[in-house]
Amino acid sequence: MKLTLRVWRQKNTDAPGAMSTYEVDGISQDMSFLEMLDTLNEELILAGDDPVAFDHDCREGICGACSLVINGDAHGPERTTTCQLHMRSFDDGDTIDIEPWRASAFPVVKDLVVDRSAFDRIIQAGGYISAPTGTAPDAHATPVPKPDADFAFEHAECIGCGACVAACPNGSAMLFTSAKVNHLNVLPQGAPERETRVLDMVEQMDSEGFGGCTLTGECATACPKGIPLPSISAMNKEWLRATRKARR
């Protein structure tokens, strides 16, 4: 396959950026999208140019490191992570636009790499449980009803990639925060911090400069792990409950 790539190039956070056009040839349909970018970078390095910086780690769709907006879609046209997107989703001769996540809370570090530490600070604000140290408790020591376990598991699937923020026209982190809040709030292990967790995490989310939710549903459509849109409503319910109890 021969492709034309239009890639966002930006030296650092403060430098202005622009789209640069590259031609790549000899791309196999079985390559992943990141392997296609590796091919481009090898050519750039051989030509003495600066390779395109992009985030990647496990390349198995489970770590949440990769993060590209491909032709206007976070993680590209398939409902998966960029590393699990394959070139068979494109046609020979296509022009592909590649941009970084866009949100003021995710500043561009270089080219396609953005700083997602705002998510870490949201987790630090309440995305944990207080557990005694020592040997691991027996798995059946704390019974969890099956529907609650399923609900928690569905939300625990969030890998924190930030596609929800990238897809949202308001740059809102509501889907990410709701996945983390719902995951722990439904479980008995998360019960002691149930109120403070949702209040603190939402407060941190707001202070990071993410936008508000207007329920466009773009986040849930982009999410590679299928975190559903009603998660946001479930978090709103938790937030209202905690606000009524006024426990901080």
Binding site: V69, S104, N170, G171
Partner: peptide, 15 residues
């Protein structure tokens, strides 16, 4: 106002 500030740069590829 907050939402517009949170997404100051729009995507080049629009849909």
């Amino acid at each position: 106002r907050r939402d517009l500030r949170a997404r100051p740069i729009t995507y080049v590829h629009k849909r």
